[in-house]
Structure formats: structure tokens, C-alpha cells
Write a protein that binds this DNA or RNA. Structure first.
Length: 461
DNA sequence: GCATGATCATGC
DNA sequence: GCATGATCATGC
């Protein structure tokens, strides 16, 4: 079959791909597309390869357009309430071969051979639409800018190192900044051998974090009426530095200083009672304008948490996350849950401590949750799901206060469940009526990190 | 002094 | 109106 492009000529391939912009697969392809047999999540890409580019989908370790070393990737966009576009998810790249990575250098790696040059096709995912009717919005090639590539190399090295240490089963997306190791497979039973441990490891693929993909779409969209995220200022990571080193070096001069002293020396005026105060103080220290986001933090989806320690090192409060919906948690599995997704992020903790009633900056710390603790958090999540499913939330009512069966601080050393609402009447519906109170809805709750855990495993370590 | 339930304040 | 970060109140 004669291809409608020259597979040895990059420009010819890209020009042909660009014709997809503003079209759906149904409009862009031959009517034979109606007979496609691809089902399942990844099938947009497979249909695109077979019916538009005219080659059979494969899982070879070389790039799809092997003659010029360019890989084809398609990925969904979502539209926000304000009509701006964002990536719907992380961009999943090739499978990590645990057995081979340990003997490879980055430049000669399977990863780099396949993904150095990518032809990206972004389509708008719309619920209820047939995949043939998703509108293709953005088409362009992508090469990693050098500053990003330095960070991606370090991410890759870290993944390799963990496998070399016999810890492939402990990999987490939170280990790295831009390039993640995300789980890939039908279910939790999709596992592989690893070279230096008998423990089977979950099958994982290299992936670009959702925040990084948002940066990509903002870059390739260029000047359009539609908004695809925004390009944001960088904290300028020098070639031989990690993001951690740059950020910590900027904070260090302020260790031991009071908030007032920090404000004076940064010359930034801030409303200390404003909700965004600590976030703004972080930006002031990093030298980022207050109305801007921090590029590296957005790309790496780093979650900043500020903690105020008492003089005895115990955080004054536990750390809250988003509320969970009772009707959702009972239908979720741990591996797909919001809570696990959050816990697999990279965090930046900014620790202040009370010293004679005054808060001083103690230190900052990059952190992601170790594998064993994620297993602990899973127990809290499973217990919560079970309690909601059975309708056994309320244990007893005393003096009008409802005491629950949700996992508390003595249930687990890592996390517990507590209310997080405007008041007791601020509720979400229950999937199962509460047995004791007959309530059909219940005060909003969320997962919290125990303050003792934050002290012992994050601050003191 | 802490655990747990409850609530507040801000900003989008 | 609601999400989010922060804080309060009470009983043991």
C-alpha cells in the first residue's frame, strides 16, 4: 500500500499529521475505519496508526517512524469550566524493562531511542462520544528542551538506580520530577520480574507527568484564541543542579529567620493573614512574582505544604487533603483512587517553628511517601471504604455529637479520617443509609496525615 | 496535652 | 457556592 507521506522524510510526516487538526478520525480517515476492532483504553492511538498513518500498531522498542526515529503519541485533553484546555492525564510512554535498564546508559537507553523525538497528537476527550468523533486539537513534534532534559535524565537515573537496588517494586511516581514511573497494566496483577530481587514488581511505564504535559501543550499551541494552559517562569536550574538543590539553596539563607525578617530582606509586602500567605512567601523566597506560578513546580506537580511546629517539634495541626465523596470511594479501587494519586506526588514541606511565640523558618524538605507507608495509607483507605459501604459510619451519638468508626490516629501511624467541612450540615450523600442514624448524607470528611507521622518521618528524618 | 469532632476565613 | 488551608472546642 502506498503511504500518503514519505516515511523517510520528517517534514512530510509532520505535514501529513498536521492535516488532522480540527478533524475527527471519522472525518480524516477512509470509510474502512468503521470496521475497526479496537476496544479498550488505548485504542485511539491504535486506530490512528492503522487507519491514518497506515501501519500496524506495534510494541517494538524502536520508534514508530523508525526510519527517522520519531515516535507517535496521542493523548486526550479536557476542557475546564472557563473553557481553557488542559491535559486530561499523564502521557504514558514505553514500558520500563527492568531487566535491561540496569545495563544501559541514558543516551543508549531504550527510553531515549524511542522517545527522544515525539510526534504529538492531542484530541479533546468528551464523555459519551465515540472515539471516532473526538476532535483533534493540537498536532506537533516535541523535542525536550535542554533544561528539561537535564531533569529527565536525573529522573531516569533514579528509576534505574532503584531497580539496580532491587527495589523495582517500590517505585513511585513521587520519586521523580518530570519523568514518572506510572503503573501500566490491566490490574494489580500485572507484574514483571526484576533483576536484583525475587519480589515481582508492578509493570510500569515511563510517563510525563500531567503538569509537564500541560507545559507541552502550552508550548506547541503557540498564539491561538483558545487557551492551552500557560507558560510560566522558571527558577532556572543550572546544568549540574537538581531542582531540590536550587530550591533549598534559595531557602537556606532564611533558616532561623522570623517571618518579619524574611519579608524585610525579600522586600516583598504580604498580608500575613491572607489565605495565600505561605504560598506567596514561598514565591518571594524563590524570586517568583506573586501572580505567577513556579514552572518547575507546575511541571513536576509538586505539592507545597506548610507546617507550623510547636517547640517540641510536633506539628500544631494534622495535614488535610481534599474531601472524598462517599458515593465515589465505594466504587473505586485503591490503585485508581484519588488518595493514592495524591500520595504518589512529590511534596515540598516548608517547616516553621514557634520560638518564643514567634514563627521562624526551620527548613524546607522535598519528600515523597515511601512504599511501606503507602501500604499503610492503603489500609486506612480500605477501612474507610468498607465502613461507608456497610453504612456503619456512626458509632454512637453523645450530647448531640456523633462519634464515628472511621480510622483514627490509633488505627494507623500514617493517616486518619476526620471531618473537613464548613459545619456538620455541610455534607455529601451516602451510597448506603447510615445504620445507626438513618442519615442519607454525612458531614464531609477527608484523609489527614498524622502530625506525629509528619514529625517522625518527614521533619526529623 | 492530646484526640476527635466541628468550624472558620479566604478566594475563586 | 464551594474548595482549601487553617483553627477551635471539648472531654478524657
Amino acid at each position: 500500500m502506498k503511504l500518503p507521506y514519505n516515511p523517510k522524510d520528517k517534514k512530510s510526516i509532520i505535514d501529513y499529521a498536521q492535516l488532522l487538526k480540527g478533524k475527527t478520525l471519522r472525518q480524516a480517515c477512509d470509510p474502512s475505519i468503521l470496521k475497526h476492532n479496537y476496544t479498550g483504553k488505548g485504542n485511539f492511538g491504535q486506530i490512528l496508526e492503522k487507519f491514518y498513518f497506515g501501519y500496524d500498531p506495534n510494541s517494538k522498542s524502536e520508534a514508530d517512524f523508525f526510519e527517522i526515529g520519531m515516535e507517535l503519541k496521542s493523548s486526550p485533553l479536557k476542557q475546564l469550566k472557563n473553557n481553557e484546555y488542559r491535559s486530561k492525564e499523564r502521557l504514558v510512554l514505553s514500558i520500563i524493562d527492568y531487566l535491561k535498564i540496569v545495563d544501559q546508559s541514558f543516551d543508549e537507553s531504550d527510553f531515549w531511542k524511542k522517545n527522544a523525538n515525539i510526534l504529538l497528537i492531542f484530541y479533546l476527550h468528551q464523555a459519551g462520544f465515540d472515539i471516532l468523533d473526538y476532535l483533534i486539537k493540537l498536532v506537533d513534534e516535541w523535542n525536550f528542551p535542554n533544561t528539561d532534559l537535564e531533569i529527565i535524565k536525573k529522573d531516569w537515573q533514579l528509576i534505574k538506580q532503584k531497580v539496580a537496588n532491587g527495589k523495582a517494586h517500590e517505585l513511585s511516581e513521587g520519586d521523580t520530577f518530570y519523568l514518572g514511573a506510572c503503573t501500566k497494566g490491566a490490574n494489580a496483577l500485572s507484574v514483571r520480574k526484576q533483576p536484583f530481587s525475587k519480589t515481582p514488581a508492578k509493570q510500569r511505564a515511563y510517563s510525563l507527568k500531567q503538569g509537564y504535559v500541560n507545559h507541552i501543550i502550552a508550548s506547541i499551541a503557540g498564539e491561538t484564541k483558545e487557551v492551552y494552559g500557560k507558560l510560566i517562569p522558571s527558577v532556572a536550574v543550572a546544568k549540574k543542579q537538581t531542582i531540590e538543590e536550587v530550591v533549598i539553596s534559595k531557602f537556606k539563607p532564611y533558616y532561623g529567620k522570623t517571618i518579619e525578617q524574611i519579608l524585610t530582606s525579600t522586600g516583598v509586602e504580604l498580608n500575613t493573614t491572607a489565605k495565600s500567605f505561605y504560598a506567596n512567601l514561598t514565591k518571594a523566597i524563590l524570586g517568583i512574582e506573586l501572580d505567577k506560578e513556579i514552572e518547575e513546580f507546575e511541571k513536576a506537580e509538586i505539592i507545597v505544604k506548610t507546617v507550623r511546629l510547636k517547640e517540641n517539634n510536633l506539628p500544631k495541626e494534622d495535614i488535610s487533603f481534599s474531601n472524598f465523596k462517599y458515593e465515589e470511594i465505594v466504587n473505586e479501587e485503591w490503585d485508581e483512587s484519588n488518595f493514592k494519586d495524591i500520595l504518589e506526588h512529590k511534596f515540598l514541606f516548608v517547616f516553621f517553628q514557634f520560638e518564643n511565640e514567634e514563627l521562624v523558618l526551620r527548613k524546607v524538605k522535598f519528600w515523597n511517601m515511601p512504599y511501606v507507608d503507602i501500604l499503610e495509607a492503603e489500609k486506612v483507605w480500605e477501612e474507610t471504604k468498607s465502613i461507608v459501604s456497610k453504612g456503619k459510619i456512626v458509632r454512637e451519638v453523645k450530647d448531640g455529637i456523633r462519634y464515628t468508626n472511621f480510622p483514627n490516629k490509633s488505627f494507623n501511624s500514617v493517616s486518619h479520617v476526620r471531618p473537613h467541612a464548613t459545619n456538620a450540615a455541610d455534607t455529601y450523600p451516602l451510597p448506603t443509609k447510615d445504620k445507626l442514624t438513618k442519615a442519607k448524607e454525612y458531614t464531609k470528611h477527608c484523609f489527614w496525615l498524622n502530625n506525629t507521622y509528619v514529625r517522625d518521618e518527614i521533619y526529623l528524618k
